[in-house]
């Protein structure tokens, strides 16, 4: 059972990334490129001209091009808390290792 779960999970990540097949989130990603215009934009008429307003600037297919990814605040940890710091203690050579590692 554990094996099949693992296989399924890896498939899910492949779907998330490459966006093919039944995963719902993958579909969302695909849709965001073509279905966008109808849902996200509202048209306001003022005089002669129609002004199109996009609800979110800088999103979808025109995302800001930067590889530097700053982790959003809600995913961050409070590193001043010693208990939180214990999570990565063993990633250092000074940490406590398992007996089999040396």
């Amino acid at each position: 059972a554990a094996e099949s779960f693992k296989a399924r999970r890896s498939k899910n990540i492949m779907h998330l990334v490459y966006g093919k097949g039944g995963d719902s989130e993958a579909k969302d990603i695909e849709k965001s490129t073509d279905g966008k215009e109808d849902s996200d934009t509202e048209v306001e008429e003022s005089g002669l001209f129609k002004i199109k307003k996009t609800s979110q600037a800088n999103s979808g297919i025109n995302q800001f091009d930067a590889t530097k990814h700053r982790l959003p605040d809600e995913y961050r940890h409070d590193w001043h808390n010693p208990e939180i710091r214990e999570m990565i203690r063993n990633r250092f050579v000074t940490g406590k290792w398992d007996n089999d590692e040396d």
Binding site: V17, Y18, T67, H69
Partner: peptide
């Protein structure tokens, strides 16, 4: 964790080179 830019990049690699990565999570 893959950053958003990396996910886009993987898709583009598939577009240009036809290469798909096998991604296996290590629990």
């Amino acid at each position: 964790k893959l950053s958003p830019a990396t996910i886009d990049f993987l898709r583009h690699i598939k577009n240009f080179f036809g290469v798909t990565f096998r991604i296996v999570p290590d629990e």
